[in-house]
Amino acid sequence: MSWSKPLRSMVFAGLALGLATSLGACSFAPVYTGPLASQPMLNLAYAKPNSRLEQVVYQELALRFGSSDAATAPLATVSVSSSAADTMLSATANPSKAIEVTVTATLTITARDGSTAPAQSFTRMATASYTRNGQVLADNAAATEAAERAAKAAAESLRLAVLAGLSR
């Protein structure tokens, strides 16, 4: 069955109008700029890192949010733990072993401006994989790199959690 040209153009115009109306009801807010990203709550002061993974998380958060040296800036404290697990379920003839590193990061933001606002806490996990092949130096370098990749992913997830918490 062939549609006539006027009927085809009316259907197309109706679809375009319906799509424009439905998308007009949506609203999007940018995550990197705009009023959400410029809130005073995001002018954070960061605690001193206790480990390399904490330093990675602090650096990622400071890169995204910026940092403040003001005495009244909210204090961001991060604690990071990591664990590695062998992902091979059975022994194989292949000497390479897949290992998965899991990093759990907890961010606590405490107000220091004299208000009685409770501290906000966010916890996120991220994983990264690497392959161990029996060469000690290469295995250690791969484990360190995988843990740092997981820490960066956890920091990004923490950043999004903070922005989501502020938008409520």
Rank of each mutant, 00 (worst) to 15 (best):
Y58T: 06
S83Y: 06
C26D: 13
L15H: 01
A25F: 02
P40W: 04
K48E: 15
L166D: 01
N133M: 10
K5C: 00
N43H: 12
N43C: 07
Y46K: 03
T104S: 14
C26M: 08
L15Y: 07
A150P: 02
A141T: 12
Q39N: 03
L63A: 09
E60S: 15
A13S: 08
L19D: 01
S68E: 02
S83K: 13
G165W: 06
L61T: 11
P35L: 11
Y46P: 09
L17T: 09
L7E: 15
K97H: 14
T144K: 11
N43S: 11
G165L: 01
V162W: 09
A98G: 06
T102L: 07
A142F: 01
Y58S: 05
S67V: 02
T102F: 02
A29S: 14
A143N: 12
V31Y: 05
K5T: 05
S121T: 13
V162K: 08
A70S: 10
T72F: 11
T106K: 12
R8N: 00
T131L: 10
P6R: 02
S2Y: 09
A13P: 01
R8E: 11
S167W: 04
L23Q: 13
A126V: 04
L44H: 07
P74S: 08
Y46F: 15
A128M: 03
W3R: 10
R132Y: 02
S38A: 15
